[in-house]
Design a protein around this nucleic acid. Structure first.
Lengths: 325, 325
DNA sequence: CAGAGAGGTACCACGATATTG
DNA sequence: ACAATATCGTGGTACCTCTCT
């Protein structure tokens, strides 16, 4: 910067003003400075800037299960929106979302003095780990199924699970079995709540859910169990992969989907339209989740006090895997 | 740091030595300093450190299509390995992998003065964009199908495509049709090369491939076309999603997989085992790709001159979607 | 004298280097 | 020879001052 100042024949302070777009610089001078900048291929040093302003211009992300559909798509939303605002994104991904890992991950980010943090780890353990900690940087938490709040962004998964269940019940099924996600995940309880809530509102009993672990494999296992019960005619799986496994299991047991059994999934992964049969499911715009998290975080980092973040709402995706009882 | 020094009754320089693990400090003094650090909850300021050392301790990642299976898994490998080495990861994801976006992305990372860059954008445009640019920071490029080199990490996709093709030919199929990825992608040409190479080596002609765009939808479209040709008995799709679409199309046209037509996919996504039928495919350890990229990058950043990076080799995953002609 | 445009100086929190005990 | 200190440089921004309409 000092070289630029010398070349342009001004003080380094004026260069700083030009770089930061201050308006109190003569257009003529500014042009001279900019020319010098181009000539010297000058780039300002973010470390020095961070040191002087005590803001690193970076956002930290604590991730868990980033190879999964929802989180990975949300991540691109975060990266895009951050960059638009001139912020770098600093990712830490945890192998397990327990308290120890969470606090180590946050520590790492605080060590890197990020200006704000987004937690993309929708499990109860992560939430619990956050409870104790005092953070100086503002935090946004992705919390599926939660009620809107200033410091979290939520998908309305209860509404989504209700949609799925209602669709099946309205088609004449006496009840709906549920293949849930693993306990400890926020999405798991939200989807169970929506499913059970919808059933009870319609005066139907909710049979015990079968617990899976999000993998197609676990869906398959649950499907085998369900296929052994001839009274089962409708299944709501907590994600599309498990729904795929369920359908596979029914097929292997000789029960046709959707003729004998209806299946509805959750998430709306792009492939789901091409499963056999095409999977009726509940879609969410996860990239929007990421974008909202960032914009809210930026507002809070700026010291403003924005209202709660609107929930990202589900979309009903009608395909062929469910029909009338 | 100066407060710590005061509390411990030493100079800030001694504190710096303790923090950086220098050996020339009396254990007794070091203990006193560490106690002061704990007491004041001191954390060193990375910006100041970066300014003084002129190293930011961060690795930049230029990504494209990060929501896809391969890249998203590779990303977690990168994040893990970077953190183990104490480096932060700074992600920029491009919406399009053309020259303009690539150079803007790299610019952004250089602006952030990352110490090294990993390009996770396996398209020709990205490679071309890199050609011109002079980078001061070392660069690692993920380049599917490439021969080993110091500055790139490759999956041996030619070998993978050969495996797939050979399996089908050995099962008695007279030829193998290929549903390729979109042109411009490195994986596309590598897979075409492996497929065509294997066919020609066995004295078989390679019929023109059908071009898809990685989506299940495009696989479905290609599948409809292939299903209209009764001579088609074996299809090798360039990824699992398209293979899923192909199988769906055949089913819709009343041609059974694997009885009438054999299908082999590529990538080995976890769900593929649960497609109907289970998809025979070629698996790669993409997390390992990410880890190797980081370790090689670190070596080069340290000024060493390591040898070329070994290719990540494919695994044959035998399932039910292919059988004898 | 007010206000805009420009310059001067201190400071941010470290590590490198030379120097002292 | 070795441990510890003092000083300086890193590249910016904040704040105050100065000059000139």
């Amino acid at each position: 910067m000092i070289d630029v100042a010398r070349l342009a024949g001004v003080s380094h302070q004026t260069v700083s003003r030009v770089v930061n777009g201050s308006d109190s610089v003569t257009p003529e001078l500014a042009e001279r400075v900019e020319h010098a900048i181009r000539q010297l291929r000058y780039r300002r040093n973010p470390a020095a800037r961070a040191l002087a302003t005590s803001r690193s211009m970076s956002i930290g992300i604590v991730g868990f299960g980033l190879a999964q559909y929802g989180p990975s798509v949300a991540l691109t939303g975060i990266a895009d929106e951050s960059r638009r605002a001139g912020y770098a994104t600093n990712i830490v991904s945890m192998a397990e979302a327990d308290r120890a890992n969470m606090s180590r991950a946050l520590d790492h980010l605080v060590d890197d003095s990020v200006d704000g943090i987004i937690v993309l780890a929708p499990v109860e353990g992560a939430l619990a780990a956050l409870q104790g900690l005092e953070m100086d940087a503002p935090l946004m938490v992705f919390q599926p199924g939660a009620t809107p709040a200033v410091d979290r962004v939520a998908t309305d998964e209860i509404a989504g699970a209700r949609m799925a269940t209602a669709h099946l019940v309205r088609s004449g099924h006496r009840t709906v079995r549920h293949v849930s996600g693993p306990s400890g995940w926020l999405g798991t309880s939200a989807r169970i709540a929506g499913w059970a809530g919808e059933l009870s509102e319609r005066g139907l009993a909710a049979p015990p859910p079968l617990e899976g672990d999000w993998t197609t494999e676990s869906g398959y296992a649950a499907g085998r169990t369900l296929a052994g019960d001839p009274s089962v005619t409708a299944v709501f799986a907590a994600n599309d992969q498990m729904a795929l496994g369920v359908m596979k299991a029914f097929a292997d047991e000789g029960r046709r989907v959707p003729e004998d059994v209806s299946v509805v999934g959750f998430d709306g992964v792009p492939e789901s339209a091409y499963y056999r049969p095409g999977l009726t499911t509940i879609g969410f715009d996860f990239a929007e989740v990421g974008r909202r998290a960032v914009s809210q975080l930026l507002l809070r980092m700026a010291g403003e006090e924005p209202g709660p973040v609107a929930r990202v709402e589900p979309t009903f995706l009608l395909r062929d895997s469910a029909r009338a009882a």
